[in-house]
Simulated assay, not measured.
Amino acid sequence: MKPRRIEDEVFQHLSGRWALQILLSLSNGPLRFIDLRRAIPTVSANTLTTRLRELEAIGFVERRQLPPPTSIQVYDLGEFGRGLRPTLEHLALWKADLCCSAFALRR
Rank of each mutant, 00 (worst) to 15 (best):
R5N: 05
I40G: 11
N28F: 10
C100R: 10
A102M: 09
D97A: 09
E9M: 02
L36N: 04
V74K: 08
T47K: 07
T87P: 00
P68W: 01
H90N: 15
T42K: 03
W94D: 14
I58S: 13
L98G: 13
A45Q: 02
R37G: 12
R106I: 08
N28P: 06
R107L: 15
K95M: 08
G81H: 11
D35P: 00
A96M: 01
P3Y: 08
T42C: 02
H90Q: 13
V61A: 09
L48Q: 10
S27P: 07
T70D: 09
L23D: 13
R63H: 06
E62I: 06
K95N: 09
V74I: 15
R64H: 12
S27W: 05
F103Y: 04
P67Q: 05
R37A: 15
L52Q: 08
K95P: 01
T70F: 08
H13E: 15
L55T: 13
C99F: 09
A57L: 05
G59K: 06
H13C: 14
L84N: 09
A92Q: 06
G81L: 02
F33K: 10
T87W: 00
F103Q: 03
L36P: 05
F103N: 00
L66N: 01
S25E: 15
V74C: 03
S27G: 11
I34Y: 12
G81Q: 05
R107K: 13
L31A: 11
D76Q: 02
L98D: 14
G16R: 07
I58M: 07
R85T: 11
I58V: 14
W94Y: 13
H90S: 14
L48A: 13
R32K: 11
A96V: 05
V61R: 04
Q65P: 00
C100V: 03
L23P: 12
L23E: 15
I72P: 00
S25F: 09
V74N: 02
P3L: 08
E9F: 06
D76V: 01
L88C: 12
A57P: 04
S44T: 15
A102F: 04
R4L: 14
R106H: 11
E79A: 12
G81I: 05
M1R: 05
E62M: 08
D76G: 09
H13R: 14
A92E: 09
A39E: 10
L48F: 10
L84H: 02
P69R: 02
A39F: 03
T42I: 08
T70P: 06
N28I: 03
I6P: 10
E56S: 07
E9N: 02
R107T: 11
W18I: 05
Q65A: 04
A104V: 10
H13D: 15
R4V: 11
F103V: 10
D35V: 04
R82C: 14
A96E: 13
P3S: 10
T50H: 03
I34H: 07
F33D: 10
R63M: 07
C100T: 06
V61S: 05
D35S: 11
R37Q: 15
E79Q: 08
T49C: 00
T87V: 04
Y75S: 04
Q21W: 01
Q21G: 15
G78E: 06
L14Q: 03
G78H: 00
A45T: 12
L52S: 07
L48K: 01
E9T: 07
Q21D: 14
R17W: 03
M1I: 01
L31K: 10
R37F: 01
